[in-house]
């Protein structure tokens, strides 16, 4: 139910408005934060409007441009909506819209193969990150209490370093004359340098490396909260350690596991830097395709179409992530 005084500004109250209002000027406060209506309205509006303008509306424009045609002009798409002519200008543009870009995405193997390879890489690297990250998170949660803050910081620290630098660090290791090959050669494990850089293996290593903190931190915070007496109780009841791990530890770490997987899977789907620097031409992820279309071919409409389809693929994981975050923040409060 919408309170009459608030409906004018588009805000509803926390609860249904009580039927009889004895005071004509009853306070419009939230029950717990007695700021005035206008203060509350302004407080909500400033960040809200910012996000609407710079986060939500851009997607509408992307959707519109994805229906346009590419052209050699500034901006490189047609038709450009002439907002100055109002509805007529919009109508004229709408008549020129077509789904031809989306048809290209389906018909040309370059595009749909890029989506598929992104999905494969995102899925596999999420799995690998779990396999690498779980033992680390588990080890951290089982480390002596006094070490734990330091370990947490050591996981967070790389997060503050840019992906670009971290991917660059791997180039020096993986290239044919790089450190890994030098080491293997000097030990005598190999006779001639391996071709490591610009392979899909390098992309996986790079992704696991850069996204590991995103997996370890939520896993750790779930495992750290886990009461040791629970595993002790399970063992006391006759459950061998590996079964305890599987039946007690893993289910209780599930929220962290899900959060970690979403935090890795979603951004990796659109990853550009790592496949570009470490995969070279051996991998074609959709982020690279988009980059090339936008910067090299200046085909903004197809880049927009790629974005819209990518969003459509990611919308379910993103909604899952939002629900997870909202629930977490509500639990905190």
């Amino acid at each position: 139910m919408i309170d009459h005084n608030l409906s004018s500004v588009g805000l509803t109250r926390t609860e249904p408005a009580p039927a009889p209002r004895h005071e004509p000027e009853a306070p419009e406060n939230t029950p717990t934060n007695p700021t005035g209506t206008w203060g509350r309205f302004a407080l909500i509006c400033v960040p809200y409007v910012w996000l609407l303008l710079f986060f939500l509306i851009p997607f509408v424009i992307v959707a519109m441009v994805s229906l346009d045609e590419v052209t050699v002009a500034v901006p490189p798409y047609l038709p450009v909506i002439e907002w100055g002519r109002g509805v007529a200008g919009l109508w004229e543009a709408v008549q020129h819209w077509s789904l031809s870009n989306y048809v290209r995405l389906v018909e040309e193997a370059l595009y749909w193969q890029a989506y598929l390879s992104s999905l494969r890489i995102a899925f596999l690297s999420t799995l690998l990150t779990v396999l690498v990250g779980f033992p680390i998170a588990y080890g951290m949660a089982r480390a002596p209490r006094s070490w734990q803050p330091i370990l947490v910081m050591m996981v967070i620290l790389p997060f503050w370093t840019s992906f670009l630098i971290r991917a660059y660090a791997w180039i020096g290791i993986l290239r044919t004359d790089g450190l890994l090959n030098q080491a293997l050669l000097s030990v005598g494990l190999i006779n001639e340098p391996l071709f490591l850089l610009n392979t899909s293996g390098a992309v996986y290593v790079g992704i696991i490396y850069t996204y590991l903190p995103f997996m370890v931190l939520p896993l750790y915070s779930a495992l750290e909260r886990l009461d040791t007496t629970l595993t002790e109780a399970a063992e006391d009841l006759g459950c061998p350690p590996w079964k305890t791990f599987w039946y007690v530890t893993v289910p209780l770490a599930k929220p962290g596991l899900i959060a970690g997987c979403l935090l890795v899977f979603i951004p990796v789907m659109g990853e550009f830097i790592i496949p570009d620097l470490l995969g070279g031409s051996s991998t074609q992820m959709i982020g690279q395709t988009l980059w090339v279309e936008f910067f090299s071919h200046r085909d903004w409409p197809i880049a927009s179409a790629i974005t819209i389809v990518l969003l459509a693929v990611l919308i379910i994981p993103i909604l899952l992530f939002q629900r997870h975050e909202t629930r977490r923040s509500e639990e905190e409060t």
């Binding site: 710079f54 424009i61 979603i266 951004p267 990853e271 988009l290 990518l310 990611l314 992530f321 939002q322």
Partner: peptide
Amino acid sequence: FSGMIYAPLVMPEVILGLSLVLL
């Protein structure tokens, strides 16, 4: 609102970059 807060945390950067430049 909370959706617009949480989505950019995971949204691939290419999407954010492209959508803003078009705006």
